[in-house]
């Protein structure tokens, strides 16, 4: 496992194998094998674009749902979490410490759609005790990438120092 390689891919998954190799002082073949092995081991789970959905009016809303759940003997929160994650509407599921148990990020085209999903699918699930829905109104930063007012390069164009 190569932490530096992972960090670079996390920064930008589009770097070419060759560029990664040069930056890390490795051979192209080594980088390729390393990536393949990390994919195989499930260390790297996938690659996707970070999209500023606000630029596409009305295409995407999301909400953070706080779920209180009664844990099951033996299985704890595991079973219910696994069932929740199967919905296409669910983007992320986390087991939380603190005032509630599961944090579920739900996406949809409209507020209505998300609210209905929570009411009909999540709230009615067995062992779910309560839900509390918080809609995302604006995204400022997503996965390390700033979506608003990103730093502009205000340096001079050329100088001796």
């Amino acid at each position: 496992m190569n932490i530096k390689l992972l960090k670079l891919l996390n920064q930008n998954a589009k770097y070419s194998v060759h560029d990664l190799a040069v930056m890390l002082d490795m051979s192209d073949e080594e980088v390729k094998q390393e990536i393949e092995s990390m994919e195989r081991e499930g260390l790297i789970r996938g690659y996707k674009a970070v999209i500023d959905w606000e630029k596409l009016d009305g295409a995407y809303v999301s909400a953070l749902i706080e779920l209180k759940v009664s844990p099951q003997p033996d299985a704890g929160f595991e079973d219910i979490a696994k069932r929740i994650m199967k919905f296409n509407e669910v983007e992320s599921v986390y087991l939380m410490s603190g005032a509630f148990d599961l944090c579920v990020i739900v996406k949809g085209k409209t507020f209505q759609e998300v609210a209905m999903f929570v009411a009909k699918q999540l709230a009615t699930m067995e062992y779910v005790l309560s839900t509390s829905t918080h809609f995302v109104l604006r995204r400022y930063k997503e996965q390390d990438i700033e979506l608003v007012d990103s730093d502009v390069d205000d340096r001079r164009k050329i100088s001796l120092c």
Binding site: D153, R155, R156, K157, I158
Partner: peptide, 28 residues
């Protein structure tokens, strides 16, 4: 004055330049 000044002036005036010209970190 450095003879380079004229060249620097042209660079500063030009739009859409891809520069590798400054010795100043890009990090904040």
């Amino acid at each position: 004055p450095s003879g380079i000044r004229k060249f620097f002036g042209i660079v500063e005036e030009m739009d859409d330049v891809i520069t590798l010209g400054v010795g100043e970190p890009d990090f904040q």
